[in-house]
Design a protein around this nucleic acid. Structure first.
Lengths: 165, 165
DNA sequence: AGTGAAACGACCGTAGA
DNA sequence: TCTACGGTCGTTTCACT
């Protein structure tokens, strides 16, 4: 979940960018709309044979540019409270971030520059769960100095990315 | 991208939760690992026939619990700067949030309660792009009073969700 | 990096427990 | 809700461009 695919830990895993042509971009768009769409169908949409589509998808996934995965809707699973938590830390931020990552209700952790040392997104069933998560788990981590909670009211836009390692 | 599947705008789209058994959870885990895994293969892993897996996946996607999609790595596409931006607004927050959503460099917008009215995640090629995005696009939106930027240093954990509508 | 063809395997509807 | 089965379509490999 946080292991880099290759190279030393802490090193930039990909110093090289990657230039995608319009066809590869179109293929990615097809799979962003539906990750299980068949290669043949994508081929029809982008004007390529299925074999060619498959080769390009293989290359895109092998090189780590793209990934096809299942994503779930927390609301539909009974997690009615989501929030982003800004956290200020004393000492080593990495240890705190990793401790946060071990909490299952925490689905996103990123180290940041700015008035917070890190941001953590959490998923809870209700307000009581959120209070417990904050007091008993997050603020109990050694080194956590203060937290600021931004409860989610409504999602306006979401586009799936991964990376920033 | 922000249209609710059914029901009046602003209404809770799913007042009912959903109870998943262990088999459905296992199927979701399989697809979280690889969204293109075949139904037959998943069936072997979870101890079910191919048709049964297919039926359950259909139900999970139709009900909106799960979605299989492609996600891309911004770093591999040359976007070396990511940041979360906390925004304070005067007046109607929805209009500002929708204006943010129309900016392609903005991949995530959520209305929040707390010291920010909304959070926006942005993806940029470099620091100059980020400065331009902030000054020329985000802070130029009518109603934006102040912004606070948290530049991403390192992603520690990521788990894919969608929803909170 | 692309196509085309043939063998194989996955997918889908239907029937039945 | 599951398994079983047959028709159809997608995928894979390979030879070729």
């Amino acid at each position: 979940m946080s292991a880099d695919p290759k190279g030393k830990a802490g090193a930039r895993p990909t110093p090289k960018p990657m230039q995608l042509d319009d066809v590869s971009k179109a293929i990615i768009e097809q799979l962003q709309a539906d990750g299980r769409r068949s290669y043949a169908e994508i081929g029809k949409a982008v004007g390529l044979s299925e074999a060619a589509v498959r080769q390009r998808v293989q290359k895109l996934t092998d090189s780590g540019v793209m990934q096809v995965v299942a994503v779930t809707d927390p609301m539909q699973l009974g997690f009615y409270r989501q929030a982003m938590i800004g956290i200020r830390v004393a000492g080593d931020t990495t240890k705190v971030a990793e401790a946060l990552g071990r909490i299952s209700a925490v689905d996103y952790v990123v180290l940041t520059a700015g008035s917070f040392d890190m941001l953590a997104e959490v998923v809870c069933e209700n307000d009581d769960d959120l209070i417990n998560l904050l007091n008993k788990e997050i603020r109990a981590i050694e080194g956590v100095q203060s937290t600021e909670t931004f409860v989610y009211l409504k999602l306006i836009k979401q586009f799936y990315n991964w990376g920033t390692r």
